[in-house]
Design a binder for these strands. Structure first.
Length: 566
RNA sequence: AGCGGGGUGGGGUAGUCAGGAGAUCCCGCGGGGCUCAUAACCCCGAGAUUGCGUGUAGGCGCCUCGACCGGUGGUUCAAAUCCACCCCCCGCUACCA
């Protein structure tokens, strides 16, 4: 079973949104929807699960953007934090706690990490050369310096890599460097920095990674980082000058030296759990220091931070449980093209959530999220066709035909079944089998397969319903034990079971369905038996989903093409 | 440049780790059925797959007997699946989070 954890205790984290912009469909796809579905699935199973997240608020991009917007970095972070929370709530992401990295808890933990790592001999000091912009009064990281490529001579390339010839540019090699803020040439300064001895963990990381099952650590991802380790890990500079973040807790640090954002960001997961502890009276150590499956949900861009830097930090400090499961999804392209803010080729969550039910977005994106690093495409026309075909016509319509049938022909009461014939037995055992399969796919976080199998089950159900033709049988005999009664009894139980299966993916729609069925979703296991008894009274059914019109999606495509997305 | 992931009927996708009759599902297309249901649903079919000649077509004739999951070659009784090389697409590359 899942991660071999006996206690069935799970801590789920979703990558912390960086507070310098609004969230878009890509974020929802790669991280928040998968993490939320998994958390809900764990809760249905009755496991002890805590789902934490929070905003990631430090770093140069935020201080620079804040200055441009005439705000302090904290005000800037606050602004986007609020907007992100709005979107995540609207999307139905069920965090148990949403905290922030610029918090007391995170400050304490970060300091503790830094002090312990230093005490354990994993932090050392080293002189490094830095670019400094005299005009803007900031130290410039690689990405804030552009210049001419020393290899192919291409202009306007970032100082760490040339997009034209594809080569990596070593620090300081860039020709005619300039600051991207003011275009003036930077000066160089030499500072003493604190360095985390990442290289010391190479072997331990390798052993740890290679000891994991494919189920919890997908092979693609492990190969990817193993390659990285084998080519030689470099130590990690965790100091920044004149920065927006936490001060270094070392006595020998200078007053303007701060902690690099990527050091305190993952600690934010723990900080959020600590903050949750304070609210609930639970002990966060049960999750971070005990027998618990820690599951990180991330996009493929931050694999290194989560599979190398972060576990190395935990190993170096000692006493913490290491991550036990990673779910990594690739990027989302949009209509076949890479998303880009500057080219206005993206879809903000605010916009879609304004126009379509969150469950539509969840369903469509989940149908592509298969715990896999390869990219997936978001296409408005495909979105429409999946929603209309799978969700409305197949699933929604089946629910409606079963419920209205019981409501009208059996006076709202689930009829008592008679003897089951071969068709009844075959259909029943096929959907029980599908539920077992769905359970396995949920544990793997392969939601593509989950949805595929459920859609298939509904197709079978529609076929079964047509074959049994209860509308004919009912004309002859509509009492309990009749042929029609048997079919409907089986169908409403199928509906309950599959609604449980879909509950983590489209929770609010399934809430409405449960309400119509007049039941509460009990547990995952309740899907594996006939949970709705004969005689049970149902409520009046109403259509669960509405169709999307072609005009609606064409309008979205047009808005994109006209560059109207902001 | 290196590394990673792909290339499967008209479009989109599954299957590749554990080789077994050329293949899943969705959309679209052709035909039929049903009327309980949100103009929904069900069933059947065509389409990936074949050289040359000929007929309006069903077809017929001929031969060096041809085709099959990007291409070529290999391993195998058997390859979409394993191996090698090649072509094309996409992504990532630590101090941009």
């Amino acid at each position: 079973m899942l991660g071999g954890i006996a206690l069935r205790r799970v801590l789920v984290t979703a990558a912390l949104p960086y507070t310098n912009s609004d969230l878009h469909l890509g974020h929802a796809f790669s991280t928040y929807i998968p993490a939320d579905i998994f958390s809900r699935f764990c809760r249905l199973n009755g496991w002890d699960v805590v789902f934490v997240c929070g905003s990631d608020e430090h770093g140069t991009p935020i201080s620079v953007a804040a200055r441009e917007a005439g705000r302090t970095p904290l005000e800037h972070a606050d602004y986007f934090r609020r907007r992100q929370i709005e979107d995540l709530e609207k999307l139905g992401i069920s965090f148990d706690n949403y905290h922030r990295t610029h918090s007391e808890e995170n400050k304490e933990l970060t300091e503790e990490f830094l002090l312990k790592l230093r005490k354990n001999g994993y932090i050392y000091k080293k002189k490094v050369k830095l670019f400094y912009c005299e005009t803007d009064k900031v130290y410039l990281p690689d990405r804030m310096i552009k210049g001419r490529c020393p290899y192919c001579g291409a202009e306007d390339q970032y100082s760490d890599a040339c997009e034209v010839c594809g080569r990596t540019i070593e620090p300081g090699m860039i020709l005619e460097p300039y600051c991207i803020l003011c275009r003036s040439p930077p000066s160089t300064r030499s500072e003493e920095h604190f360095i985390f001895k990442l290289s010391a963990f190479s072997n331990r990381l390798l052993e740890w990674l290679e000891s994991k099952s494919d189920e919890d650590f997908s092979r693609d991802v492990v190969n990817y980082v193993v390659q990285w380790i084998k080519s030689g890990l470099q130590d990690w500079d965790i100091t920044r000058e004149d920065y927006w973040g936490f001060k270094l807790p070392y006595e020998d640090a200078k007053g303007n030296q701060y902690v690099y954002v990527w050091f305190d960001a993952p600690i934010g997961y723990i900080a959020s759990t600590v903050n949750w502890s304070k609210k609930t009276g639970q002990d966060w150590r049960n999750y971070w220091m005990g027998d618990c499956l820690i599951a990180h949900f991330i996009g493929k861009d931050i694999i290194y931070h989560h599979l190398l830097f972060w576990p190395a930090m935990l190993m170096g400090v000692g006493g913490y449980t290491l991550p036990g499961k990673y779910v990594v999804n690739g990027y989302l392209t949009l209509e076949g093209r890479k998303m880009s803010k500057s080219r206005r080729w993206f879809v903000p969550l605010k916009r879609v959530l304004d126009k379509f039910p969150a469950d539509y977005i969840r369903f469509y994106l989940a149908s592509k999220a298969s715990n896999n690093v390869s990219d997936n495409d978001f296409s408005w026309l495909e979105f429409m066709s999946k929603i209309n075909g799978d969700l409305v016509d197949n699933i929604g319509n089946f629910a409606h035909r079963v419920l209205t049938f019981i409501f009208r022909w059996f006076d709202r009461r689930v009829p008592a079944p008679g003897d089951m014939d071969e068709q009844d037995n075959e259909f029943t055992s096929s959907f029980m089998r599908i539920i077992e399969e769905v359970e396995k796919e949920y544990e793997k976080c392969d939601f593509l397969q989950v949805i595929k199998r459920i859609v298939e089950a509904f197709k079978r159900a529609n076929s079964y319903f047509t074959a049994k033709a209860p509308w004919e049988a009912v004309k002859k005999d509509r009492k309990n034990g009749s042929d029609a009664a048997t079919s409907l009894y089986i169908c409403i139980n199928f509906l309950y079971s599959t609604a449980i299966c879909l509950y983590p993916i489209i929770p609010s729609s399934m809430e409405r369905l449960f309400e119509m069925m007049n039941v509460r979703p009990e547990s995952w296991n309740s899907a594996k038996r006939f949970s709705i008894a004969a005689g049970h009274l149902i409520n009046e059914p109403k259509p669960l989903f509405r169709k999307i019109s072609e005009d609606e999606v064409k309008a979205e495509i047009k808005a994109l093409e006209d560059g109207l997305i902001t």
